[in-house]
Design a protein around this nucleic acid. Sequence first.
DNA 1: GCAAGGACGTA
DNA 2: GTACGTCCTTGCA
Length: 970
Amino acid sequence: MHLLLVDGSSYVFRAFHALPPLNRKSDNLPVGCVQGFCNMLFKLTEDLKGDDQPTHMAVIFDHSAKTFRDDIYADYKAHRPPPPEELVPQFPLTRSATRAFSIPSIEMEGWEADDIIATYACMARDAGGKVTIVSSDKDLMQLVEPNGSIRMLDTIPRPGQPPLRWIGVDEVFTKFGVTPDKVIDVQALCGDAVDNVPGVPGIGVKTAAELINTYGDLETLLARAEEIKQPARRQKLIDNAELARISKQLVTLSREVPVELGLDALVRVPIEPGALFPFLKAMEFNTITKRLAGILEADPDAWEADPALAAKPVEAMGFDNAAKAEARAARLEASGRAEAALVAHAADVHERVKAIPLDHARYEIIRDAEQLRKWIEAIYAAGHVAVDVETTGLDNQTADLVGVCLSTAPGNGAYLPLDHRTGADLLGGGRVEGQMPMADALALLKPMLEDRSILKIGHNFKYDLGILARYGIVTAPIDDTLLLSYTLDGPRFNTMSELTSHWLGHGGIPIKDLIGTGKSQKTFAEVDIEAAARYGGEDADLTMRLWTLLKPRLPAENMSVVYETLERPLAPVLARMEGRGISVDRQILSRLSGDFAQRAAAFEAEAQALAGQPFNLGSPKQLGDILFGVMGLPGGTKTKTGQWATGADVLDELALQGVPLAKAVLEWRQLTKLMGTYTDALPSYINERTGRVHTSYSQASVLTGRLSSNDPNLQNIPVRTEDGRKIRTAFVASPGKILISADYSQIELRVLAHIADIQALKDAFEEGLDIHAMTASEMFGVPVEGMPSEVRRRAKAINFGIIYGISAFGLSNQLGIGRAEAGDYIETYFKRFPGIRDYMDEMRRRVKADGFVETIFGRKVQFPNANSKHPAERAFVERASINAPIQGSAADIIRRAMVKMEPALKKAGIEADMLLQVHDELIFEVDKGAEDKAMPVIAGIMESSAEPAVRLSVPLKVDAHAAHNWDEAH
DNA sequence: GCAAGGACGTA
DNA sequence: GTACGTCCTTGCA
């Protein structure tokens, strides 16, 4: 990997001073810097050939806002004059130019370009790559590294000098008199007049270098300042020690900017003519257009100038609304066209992949080390590989590895059998002949699977990551076709065969053809190797095909950021959480089970006595017949299948009317529910190897972006009733440890306040008020002091109703009031918070117009039947589309917190294991005694996790508690 | 042995 | 009124 980072802002300034002014012919817009910028980008790609040719590239700009350095030193860059007038309109154009050349343009509020450059440079170096920073800015010289892993390149034309001037350790030494690692110490002493870094007055570069070379570093120098012979110099250093320290902070580049795009997003792609020529034509850069047309073998006349950037005819510039609307339409069309080119590319790739024949005979069986080495070589040549592990089961915490499937390109595939066994002798270890020893094979695969320069592609890769982790392999980096599909199309396709049937017209060999089904099912270990190779080779091949066709859709459909920030980095985090599991106390559950069983039996006997006959209390059908048939109770309603409804709401009502049978059944149902789903079921999930319960998270099955948990579901452990809560006491910390539960307070209402921009709600959250009481007070004019609990309860129901896409029908059911009264409440709410109605109307409009709504982070939530001809279905979609941005944005916020959590804890020096996620709550396990330090850090990460992508207009609040069990920690 | 329906646990 | 997963019964293969 070779990453090229262009310091965009510094280049624009230098180009401004170095180049003669140039104005666009049609409207005199100054464009000289933009032209210089385009020439540079173009020349860079021309000049850097062979070994110097970059594989990854990005242009980094300063964002015109304050940075953390302003907080350290108020006068930082205070001497810098505002940019010249003619430069200002060129700033956004240089960003457009970057994108026109199909290069990522990166800038972040609160960070200087130099910090972002430092961060990416270190990321690439740590990944074993080479970095070139295109800049001559001395502030970046601290990043240069001796072995050439990080170099700088000065490309500003200077008379009498070669066009490309490399800056390595020697050049830095010439400039500062020290090696790059000591540059910040020298700068701390000599300061910088341009950036207004104070330094120590009277000390220049020469003196500074001499001092640092003598004493080693700044702190040693300041500590031993007394030893300096020259009296004036000695006194200056002693007097200005603090200034020097501040200066060092100012010049030290942050290498930990929370960048949104990973290195893989910076991979170089061919210039897209559909993006390039509309831009160049709008700028009226005829010479560059011709040159690039020749090189790209494209006809520039096939594209129109980008109307959003092109010179405007004079009549369209006035306050004419019609003209404005037209200009807006033109802009939209233009961005649509750029997108159209990407979409066409994605469609083209799809067609090409489909055309590649599927040939099971081509799949190789890898039987020895030499053959495996050849495949690994091919993988290195390709830079990526589709991987699929075959195992003995569906639970990756218990299944054993049987074989590994590989594919380096659509159409090829290989199967590496490792532990196939003869069915006759399962226990005695009848290992089938012709397989590599597993240890040898894994030793060869491990370096490749862990190599940061090789992209591993899987389908539902979290499963494979968990298996491989148990064999000591930490697979990274990864791409996941399931997550690509989920990002692009939502949870529409859930399995590999659904995806491949839809996109490739071929569902693949069904697994049951190999292992059978039902009682006679065998494990993959017993499948014969030739059949396994046809299946496994195809699996890897199909995964590779899916990746090839899905990945280009990300940029075409503007979903790269969602995938790169919310999906891809989360998978390994979840894999680790699943691997850790949580400790569950068998004895507590068994005691509870006994207690519940006894009480349930008593209620069962009572119910049957009251019914006058024995019947199955678990059968809603039998219960309904007894209540509304035999006993002839009034008020029965039927379900859609004609059965009597016997839900808890119905039985509650009957119990209220004085029907003791209803009460007995309700009690029985609660107790048997707790037994069947929790106290009896959970112990069977305790893993023998780890002694813990390992849930499995589904990252790609919820419409709104939430996670779901299964086998067992640990996201629905009871909490509302006293008996139910007892189950939580069985979730315990291991010996010497303690559990921490950290949950977002009212996150969905806060998100609603932000999205719908409801000032009254935002103020209430800002002031830390009881939000439901505040709502009640606003709606009913009742003071919060001494408010009856019933009033607050109604307001709370309305607040939740709003989140769920309220209807008078639903609210009346919830509150047990009339439809009309519920409708009045809703009307009052809308009058008091008009932004809510606007928000709801806007979501209804969008879902009908676009078929989707979005979260604040850009996740799309699709509703294919938004225009259904069934009114009930349409109403349902309307409510869901109102709910989705709220629930989904909250889900994205906690996803971001989870992605940031592990590195942030590590940085803070805190050892805490993240175990569980329950939608707005994270559970951790830490060493006893560490909880007081860990909790504020965890809460801080969660509260700020939206940033820097989104600056919320309401504060987020997280409550954290520590205890030995989950009940007390919650 | 499997799918659908009802019921109910969570946020 | 939103979003899930699991257990149990029932009815059909």
